[in-house]
Design a protein around this nucleic acid. Sequence first.
DNA 1: ATCCTACGATGGACAGAATCCAAGTCAAGA
DNA 2: TCTTGACTTGGATTCTGTCCATCGTAGGAT
Lengths: 136, 136
Amino acid sequence: MSDLLERLRGRGWRMTSQRRVVAEVLNGDHVHLTADEVHARAARRLPEISRATVYNTLGELVSLGEVIEVSTDGRAKRYDPNAHHPHQHLVCSNCGTIRDVHPRGNPLADLPAEERFGFTVSEAEVTYRGLCPSCA
Amino acid sequence: MSDLLERLRGRGWRMTSQRRVVAEVLNGDHVHLTADEVHARAARRLPEISRATVYNTLGELVSLGEVIEVSTDGRAKRYDPNAHHPHQHLVCSNCGTIRDVHPRGNPLADLPAEERFGFTVSEAEVTYRGLCPSCA
DNA sequence: ATCCTACGATGGACAGAATCCAAGTCAAGA
DNA sequence: TCTTGACTTGGATTCTGTCCATCGTAGGAT
Ligand SMILES: [Mn+2]
Ligand SMILES: [Mn+2]
Ligand SMILES: [Zn+2]
Ligand SMILES: [Zn+2]
């Protein structure tokens, strides 16, 4: 995720150890951490980092379009660094595991004009639910 | 929604004025109220009803499959009495208005087997977002 | 290398949503 | 009418997230 750090620098971000650590924590595939999980992992490398800073940094990353906010349950939002490849989510109803999935076709196309009620529809977010192999 | 009251009686529910009022508030089309909104409306008819009872009753209705929990934003969950006709939701990104919509086809069918990672997928929840006519 | 300062970090207070709990109440069967 | 366990209540508690005054520092200016 050093591309991310480069891009952020290019956007005029002041590079601090806190921001660097948050960006490092959000690295990998199928990463969907809550703010508190990000904070816990960041604190392993930088013990004094505050929750407020983690929330601030995550909020900025979302504004910049580098991270996506995902709320699959009614609980804490999750932060998803896979922001540049559109995808949907498959969630285990039992243990909460989340996987990125790529349904076929464009979900938007399935909503007929007469079901749009005059809205300008721009996005469709799909959450598939079921039991993961370990929970089945 | 007196069918609902009948069904609940049939399920062995003790019928209290609080439960009756909550069920009455959840009556109509495109109803997607938060627990606090339900409480406020219930309290107009039954001033001393408590928030705890509203939460309890809504939780029971959800367990019984009579009401669906919807969380379209990261805020309060909304409670949807339209539980017996499968549908999806169209949400205004600006004002939050919610409409029931019926996309064509079965959303589940768009997820190929090789994108299911061994999950037993049972449900697909779609949230369409855009601007409503008043906000556009 | 040092100085400046605006931007960022901090922790604690605060707010919103939801759950928990001990004590009191009452629906409905006996 | 009596009895009892299910239901209700208000307040405390938890969880998630935001706000704010103050302090610290990244990085440009000198
Ligand atoms: Mn994802
Ligand atoms: Mn609905
Ligand atoms: Zn699972
Ligand atoms: Zn609107």
